[in-house]
Every structure is written in C-alpha cells, then in structure tokens.
Nucleic acid binder design. Structure first.
Lengths: 189, 189
DNA sequence: GGGTATCGAAACCTTAGGTAGCGAAACTAG
DNA sequence: CTAGTTTCGCTACCTAAGGTTTCGATACCC
C-alpha cells in the first residue's frame, strides 16, 4: 500500500516546495519579466531542478495560475453596502496587481492564454470563476453583469500594465472605481 | 546610381506584396489563432517565402502592427458633440476588433509586448500614439484622461476577447459606451 | 536494513523566431 | 540582346524555450 498508519506516505517527503517555488516565481518574473522568466530560471532561483517543477505542474501556465491563486488569496468582500463592496474589490485587485511580480505574471499568463485554449480553460475555471462567483453572490448581480465588471476593471488594469510596464497610479484607480460604481449604482436589472 | 530617369529604380520590382501578406496574416490568425499563426505559415498562405517576410519586417510583432494599422485605418472622428464623438470611437474600435483575425492579432501582439520592451515601444509609438493624439485633439481632453479612456475601452474589449475567444457582444459594447460617456460627460478638468 | 517515493542531473525532442548564402527571376538602361 | 541591379525563393542553419525521458541518488517510514 502507498499509505501508512500515520497518514504520511513512505519515501522521500515532499518538502514545502510550493511556497519556495511560488516565491521564486514572483521574484524571477519581477526581475526579468514574464517571458525571460523561464522555467529553468525559476527552478534555479528556487534551488530546485526543472524536472521537479514539471512533476508538480503540468505547464508553465498552470504554475503561474497556482502562484497567482496563492498570491491573491480570497477576495475581501467587506462593506456594508454595494458601493463599499465594489470599491473595496476594485482597490483590492489593483493593489494585488501592483505587488512586485504579480501584475507581470498576471498579464503574462493572460497573454499566453490568448492562443492557448487549454490554458484559457484553466484560467477561467481556476482563477476567474471562483472570484466571479464570490462577487456574484455578494452583489446579487447576474452573471453577465459581473463578467462585464471584471472585463472593465481587470482589462483596464492589465492594459495599463501591458502598455507602460507600470501598474495604474492611484488617481486612475480612483477614477476607475468611481466610473464602475456610477455605472453599477442602479443595482441588478 | 540606384535611381533612373523614370523614377522607377532598376531591378526586380517589389510587387504589391504588402496587401497579400496582410490578408494572409489576418486569415491565418483567424483560422489558427495567434501563436499557431507562425511566420512560416503566414508566408505559405501568402504564397511567399519566409525570408521575404523578414526582408520587409524585422519581426513578427512589427508585421502584426503594420497589419493592424492597415486594418484599422483612420479613426472616424465624426459627431457634432463630445458624446457622439466618443460613442462613435468606442463602436469603431469594437467593430474593428470584431472583424475576423483583427481581434486575435491585436490581443496577440499585445500579449507578446508584455515581455518584449522593443515591441511595446513599437506598439506605443506606431499604434497607440497616433490614435491617442487624434482623440486628444478632437476631444480637448488632457493626455492622462485619454490614456485612461483607452485603457478602459481597449482593455475591456481585449480582456473579453482573451477570456472567451469571442468579441464582446453588442449589449456589452453599448453598456461600455454608456459607462465611459457618463464618466467623461463633465468635460476636461 | 529494506521498501518506497521523491529529487537532481543530464540528455534529448519539438516548435518557432530569426539569419546567411546563393542562385534565379524580373526589371531598366544601353 | 546584353549588362547591371534589385528582389525573390530555397535550403540550411542558429538559438531559446517549453516539455519529456531516463537513471542514479537521497530521504523517509516501518
């Protein structure tokens, strides 16, 4: 059998490599950019062999998606009313994208997904759907409106990041928040 | 000397290959997606050798940029007031992105630019700046607000395209138009 | 110490962007 | 018709990167 009484499987233990690899991924992406952050370089930065990475993640894209899930964590859905809720969500995603490496990794994996349907599926299922559902439940908006909200907010933030290489400044984040709040003020149809 | 009396330089003429290559590029991108639309495949679709492509364009990215410039053409800046002007601009870019191949090529070259500073420069200088300036002059808005406008509109359209593989539906384009119009209704600061 | 699962290292495959060299084609000028 | 000029097509090649395979070494449980 593969399992033992203590629950721990026999053999060489899988040390807490996920965290080390995630940190090395963000660091490497931050320092070199997404494309130059090759799997071999990430592995080297983590002090790990390339094959070890591929044993745990089937592709670079899925490694990045897992890394982003780890970096984002749960959406802080705090706020008394819809207005506070939405504005906190916008500021949260803007702040996360501003963290070193996160924005580049996010924009990069999105890039790859453009012409990789498999990665697009992973991105939609593992990253977008959970956050969309959480927003949907909290706001009571229909799916199509939440998707539109995500397109506008994430699209604008990533477009700025992609064009300038820098995250959106606070003033523009404030304008973005104000704009979507005004548009969604009326509540669900 | 390299030129002759008739103005036409001697030697084998550069036939109108640009149009053929542009058409082949959009067709190939539309059929295979951006990443699978390799330069060799585009060349084959155009009935041209790969080396001929690289003689005229220094990289795949610049080929795509030129192709997009050809596909977009000038911004139709028609409209009596700011409202008509902005809404026509939004609908124009949405319609262009909806054309077969154009949206995929646009999203794809944007993707590559994320981690290719040289391409990002080309994209900013040749594609974004002219349209930004035209909008700036027509609207009388400061540069930062026009850039914000572009981030929101183009970002949302490309994000939808990247996530679903399909361009934004008319209802969402209408909502996008309405939203930015409401936000920009007050005129420049 | 024995069994088991993981890790590291090296070699390898494939795709794709991009380059070099050379002969052939197409055109102008005389 | 010939010479000169420019571009084209073809083949072969280089490099980078994602991803796979193999095998020996290592670390853990019992």
């Amino acid at each position: 059998m593969a399992s033992t009484i203590s629950g721990r499987p026999p053999g060489r233990p899988r040390a807490g490599l996920h965290d080390v690899v995630f940190a090395a991924t963000l660091r490497t992406v931050h320092e070199l950019g997404y494309a130059r952050a090759t799997v071999e370089r990430i592995a080297a930065a983590a002090g790990v062999a390339k094959t070890t990475i591929y044993r745990r993640w089937p592709s670079k894209g899925e490694l990045i998606v897992d890394c982003l899930l780890d970096a984002f964590g749960p959406v802080p859905l705090e706020g008394a009313d819809r207005t506070e809720l939405m504005s906190s969500a916008v500021r949260w995603i803007a702040a996360k994208i501003g963290e070193p490496g996160v924005g580049d990794a996010f924009a990069g994996v999105f890039s790859d997904a453009v012409s990789d349907p498999g990665l697009r599926e992973v991105l939609a299922t593992r990253l977008q759907d959970p956050y969309r559902r959480a927003l949907q439940d909290a706001l009571g908006e229909p799916e199509s409106r939440v998707l539109f909200f995500i397109d506008v907010v994430v699209g604008a933030l990533l477009h700025r990041m992609g064009m300038t290489g820098e995250p959106m400044v606070d003033a523009d984040v404030a304008a973005l928040t104000e704009m979507v709040l005004a548009h969604f003020a009326t509540g669900p149809a």
